[in-house]
Structures are given as structure tokens and as C-alpha cells.
Design a protein around this nucleic acid. Sequence first.
RNA 1: CGGGGUGUAGCGCAGCCUGGUAGCGCGCCAGUUUUGGGUACUGGUGGUCGGAGGUUCAAAUCCUCUCACCCCGACCA
Length: 578
Amino acid sequence: MRQTRFHAPTLKEDPKDAEVVSHRYLMRGGYIRKVAAGIYDLLPLATRVVRRIEGIIREELNRAGAQEVYLPAVQPAELWQESGRWAFYGPELLRFKDRKGAEFCLGPTHEEVIVDLVRRDVRSWRALPLNLYQIQIKFRDEIRPRAGLMRGREFIMKDAYSFDVSEAAALESYDLMYRAYERIFRRCGLDFRAVEADTGAIGGSRSHEFQVLATSGEDAIVSCDACAYAANVEQAELRRSEQPSEPDAQRPSDESTARVHTPGARTIDEVSALLKRPASSFIKTLIIEADGKLHAVLVRGDHALNDIKLKKLLGATEVHLADEARVQAATGAPVGFAGPVGRLDVASMLADHAVSGMVNAVVGANESDHHLVGVSEGRDFKVQGFHDLRLAADGDACPRCDGTLRSFSGIEVGHVFYLGTKYSQAMKCTFLDEAGEDRPMVMGCYGIGVTRIMAAAIEQNHDENGIVWPPGLAPFAVHVLPLQMNVPEVVEAAEQLYVALTEAGIDVLLDDRDERAGSKFKDADLLGIPWRIAIGARGIKDGNVELKPRRGGDAELVPLDQAVSMIQARLRAALSPA
RNA sequence: CGGGGUGUAGCGCAGCCUGGUAGCGCGCCAGUUUUGGGUACUGGUGGUCGGAGGUUCAAAUCCUCUCACCCCGACCA
């Protein structure tokens, strides 16, 4: 491709609304342009990267026995009503009517459509297992799209669905996909971790997320430093500690309760500073509204509530902190002074394991500007039960071994779910088994965020000058820079090299623009093509060109006539399976 | 939805407080110059100042409403 003919409008300055690295470089490099919040054009460069990601996904999924299809973007409401998700899904499901007034939605995911497809024509156990996938634009009307391609409303996703005769067979399909995912992300050149995860709105009972490790990641994950355990913090189990917490071990456990004045101090940090007691000696009393009912939930002051665990425990569909008015009504005090001692107008009071046996703790007094000290669990208040309710944190004990959990932030680029019969039962997707009995198929579903991989790869592979593409994803393999367009020998050598590389089947971008060397170098760094061949007036006099990897490393002078074979060798080495 | 912020040329910004000719840098076009890390200079193109209403002799500037976008919290590939 000749750059004079190639639409890659680069920007010298950072666009103002781009904060994260991938967004900045994708905009500056002329890969993407914004159309609306969370909706982007993919220009030729980004399209090429997407094609490469898709290619890797196709190869690996086909190898694993999955078959590609295209499913509709616009889906009828009836299917969603049948699965029950028309009511369950929130406003991120974009709904609209056609001219006849029939209701539709833009597909945020395709379980309904695929189940409808499979139930129509698959009737026998002989046709199973079946695994169908598609790569398509999805739309989710996200509450807050952000960070460019990392969280758009419209995004390209690969979604696969497996259908099996039994749970055992379905778990085999699951493992097959899990292994395919490992191969896919490895070939994408990503540093990733598969972690145990919550199943969220899709539903199901077993699930792993594939997280790309990056400081800009939105997801918090923990991983054991001793064993293979890794999980999203939302999901991470916590080992119930053997001995009760000792918030203030120096003091006698029979300290009596006292009321202290804590004017204006609402947060644990504020009260902690005021009373000069560590956050771990506090019991945080959260007033939670779950499906309209209020509950008091106690966690230790230095811990955070895991609302997903709470949601599961309560069997609630919607859980959030109660608003100011309801807190006032339930505790008789403004937000920030709730406590477990005395009258609390709530349906139940639950606590995290770590609260069990706490002595001499600090709690809210259910009275404006006051807290209680010297409060002991069991003596001064009782809860309905202790449960695993808090978020895992760095330094917690691993639930599987004696190791310690370490926290990382990650970007979720893939997710595999074991679904069971949730959808097949609701939508009557059944088959006749060998005994002639009608049974629901056992399903799994498997997503990969294609455009998100592009962003995540940049988050993980860049420097201060631009993108450094992993070789598997690069839009071109080689960038040829003739440095002086007015020196015929230079132009001639570049053209010759361009033709030779192209004929060798290598994707090459030739910077034939009439620009100064400096501009070409800057743009080349920004675009991030793995190999750069600079052709200058000095070197070409001796028949040499300069070969340089974008990812660090020194430039080397190589004879023009050997450049193609050297590049071929380098590319082979870079793309061969590690 | 709650909190914070921004809309002025393709991009990045100043001007607004204190109303009176719409500016700067980059890019783009023409030319001279330069030629291995965004060369220097000359000339030029380009703007209903997000939109609507109002106040005023006069509005980018003051007032009201509205839309869009960004950032921080509750959702997800």
C-alpha cells in the first residue's frame, strides 16, 4: 500500500477527549474517528487490525470444530419475551418499533436468536454437539461509554454458542473453547490471565473471564502467588478466617460501650482520623435496598462490600445503597452514622465473616454526629447470619491454598460461560436422546471483544511515541520509508523493495509522501508497524538500507538485495508459536 | 441517573469577567528554502462562535431554555 493513496490521517496533537493511551494513539494514528458517544468509524488501519484479530479467532475456532454464521443485528421482541430477558434486561437494550408497530431490539448478544435457530432444525442427539459462532457488531446502550474502543456502545464481538446432550458433554465443549481462547489470546500477543468470574446478566453457573493485564483496566482481579487460583474480585471467594478479627487486641474485651461525639465525620476515614483508631476496628453498617426492602449489612471498616455476593445471598435482582431519605427513616440519622446497636428499621441484619467476634469496635450511633466505641459483636448486637460478603483485596489468603492473593487490574477481552439449560428450557430447544426421550440441550456461550482486543493490545504494547503492535495484530508487517523523495536512487530502491516485499506476500506500507525524514519517523512510530526499513541517501550509496524493529532493539544496516529474505526470516520467527 | 467539566476554522486553544472589526498555533493550498527524528519564510483557503429564545442601538461575551461531548461513581465483550 502506498501511503499517498492510503487514508490514515495522523494528528500531531492529542485529541482533547481521549485520555487512555489506546484511545489517544488510535485517534492520532488515524485508526479511528468518533461518530457519537461510544460509536466509532474504523478507518483502513483499524479495519486491517480487526481483520487480523478475526482471522486468528476464525482459525482457532474452526480448528476447535465451531462453524461460522451470521445472525441478525435486529431481533424481534418475541424471542426476548420467550427467554424472559425482555423484562429482565435494562435500558442498555436498545428497543424500537418497526413501521407496523412491532417491537424489536438491537442485539446486545445472541442467545435468543441462536436458540431459535438451533431448535428449529436440530432434533436428534446425533446432530450434537454443535457449536456456532459469529463475528458481528453488537450494540449495548451503555450507561457510560468511555475510553474509546475499550467500552463503546457499538463494538465488534465474536460470540459462540455450544449445544450438547449432557452436562458432561457441555463441560467438554467449555474446556475446548477455554483452550481455544488461550491459543487465540496468545497468538494476539497479549499478556492475559483466565480468571473465575461472575456470570452476570447472561446467566449460567460456571464462567471464566480472560483478562488482559493492564494498569488502565477497569476490572479488578486477584491471583494467588502460590497456586493457579485467579478470579475477578467480584467472584473471588474468601477463606473464612480461623480466629475472629482482633480490631483492638490491646484493650480488654469487656470494655463498655460509650457514645462519642464525632461532628461531621461520616466516612470511616474521617472518624478513624478523629478517634485515632484504625479502620479495621470499625464495623461499617451499610443500609442496602434490595428489591425494595432494606437490609443492614455489616463489614469490617477496612473491607468493601461485594454487592454481587450480597445479591446472590438475598436472591435479589437489584441491590444498591439506600438513598438518603430511606437511610434517615431506617436509622434515625443522616447517612454516615448507621450502626447495628439499638433499633434499626430493616428487614434483616447480615454481616461478613470478619465481623464475627469483633470486640471493642467503633460503630455508628444511629444519631447525627455520634458514634459508639467499645462495641462487641454478640454482646451488644446480634446479626441474622455471617456470610462471605466482602470484596477480595490484595494480601488476602488464597481460598484454595496457603498462598496470598495479589490484585491486578485487567481488561476483559473474553468470557466463557457454561449456561446449562437456562435458555434451552425457556425456549424449548430440545432433542431426542438415544432412548427416545425429549431433553433440553445443554448450552455454553463464549464471547470475545474484537475491537476491545485492539485497544487492550495497545494498552499493553506502546511507548511514548506510539503503538508497538504485537506482530500477530499489526495492520502491516513492514513500513518502508524512503527518506529523501528528491534523491532518485532512494526512491528507486524503495520502489524496488516495495515490489519485492509485496510479491513475497508481505503486507507493506510504503511512505511515498513528499515529507521530511523526521515526519516519516514520527508517523511510523505512531502507527506502530513492527518492522521499519529506512532508505537514506547515505546508505543507499553503499547499497544498504536500515532495518529496525519497532519494539526496541537496534537498527541494522543490511544490503538492499538481502532485505526481503531477512524480513521474511524475522517475520517467521515472530509469528511462530512460542 | 447523581457529581464535576467542555462546546469558538479539520485538530489544539485564546477571546467571555468589563458587550462594539473573530484571533493564535498546527494542518490544508501555492511558492521559496531545507532534507536522517514533526525545517524556515512568504502568501492564501477555511468559522451560522453547539442550538433556540430573550435583554440591548449592538451579543462569542449578559439572561433563560435546550442539545451534544468528556471525566468520576452503579453495568459488561
